[in-house]
């Protein structure tokens, strides 16, 4: 009997922890969003963050996008050629990129490159009392620190995803047309016939907006919530990458089902 009660208590503690975190995370998000309009008067803060979140992530996005596109071209070709359908290579490459790989891989890379950096930065600001210091200087850290980073991530993610997809299509083109000899005209025309701007491209953009929101939210909150020690910050950084990746993959399924599926 005692053992059962212990188990129940453990479960209760776990549930309280999870709900507590969710609740505080939501409050944090709410607080950040409420302060957002004040950024109109301080665009410099946002530009600075777009630089560190977006521009500095660009290189890894370009390189990965190119390689992912090239691999898609190669794999797609070897599968399609068995059916004599290698002309559809453009469709395979572009649909995979625009609908799925563009938003998802970008979000995963973003979580690893920019998200972890955000968490570490904010955790360190907390550990070195910079956040407290701002509060004591009557500067709201939500306006000064969180909101600009949040907005920057939200803006940067769809841009990165679009660049990833575009570079990937070019990579697929290089492999498919230049190297494997798929017909140049068929590659583009089949692609254009099958890829719809609203259905496919815009849905991909919507996905990356959602992923952007979730990734920065997790990254910022983990930093904000981190135990202000070296160990605490490193744990929080790990959690950011793990949680963001899981959230992105899980949400991707939900969004795909809503957008393209008949579930």
């Amino acid at each position: 009997m005692e053992k059962i009660l212990d188990r129940l208590q453990g479960l209760g503690v776990l549930a309280l922890n999870v709900f507590g975190r969710l609740g505080r995370g939501s409050l944090f998000l709410f607080h950040t969003l409420v302060i957002m309009p004040q950024l109109w008067r301080r665009p410099g803060l946002v530009v600075r963050q777009i630089y560190s979140v977006g521009v500095l992530t660009l290189l890894i996005i370009l390189v990965s996008g190119l390689f992912v596109g090239m691999v898609l071209g190669l794999q797609g070709y070897t599968t399609l050629v068995d059916f004599g359908a290698q002309e559809s290579l453009g469709v395979v490459v572009s649909l995979s990129l625009v609908r799925e790989l563009g938003p998802v891989v970008t979000a995963l890379l973003f979580a690893g490159r920019a998200g972890s950096a955000l968490t570490a930065e904010i955790g360190l600001m907390k550990a070195t009392e910079q956040l407290s210091g701002m509060e004591m200087m009557a500067v709201d850290p939500y306006r000064q620190v969180f909101a600009p980073r949040f907005l920057a991530g939200f803006i940067a993610m769809p841009i990165l995803a679009a660049i990833f997809s575009a570079v990937g299509v070019i990579g697929g083109y290089v492999v498919g047309v230049d190297m494997l000899g798929v017909d140049f005209g068929a590659f583009w025309s089949q692609m254009q016939a099958k890829v719809d701007f609203h259905e496919d491209v815009m849905n991909g953009v919507v996905k990356s907006l959602v992923f952007g929101l979730v990734c920065v939210w997790i990254a910022l909150y983990e930093g904000y919530d981190a135990t202000p020690t070296a160990d605490g910050v490193s744990r929080a950084t790990t959690r950011t990458v793990v949680h963001s990746s899981l959230a992105v993959l899980g949400l991707d399924f939900v969004l795909t089902a809503l957008m393209f599926g008949d579930l």
Partner: peptide
């Protein structure tokens, strides 16, 4: 980013 989106709109999609 805008060029990429334009490319996706004009060249890749219909």
């Amino acid at each position: 980013g805008m060029i990429a989106l334009f490319f996706l709109a004009m060249k890749v999609s219909n």
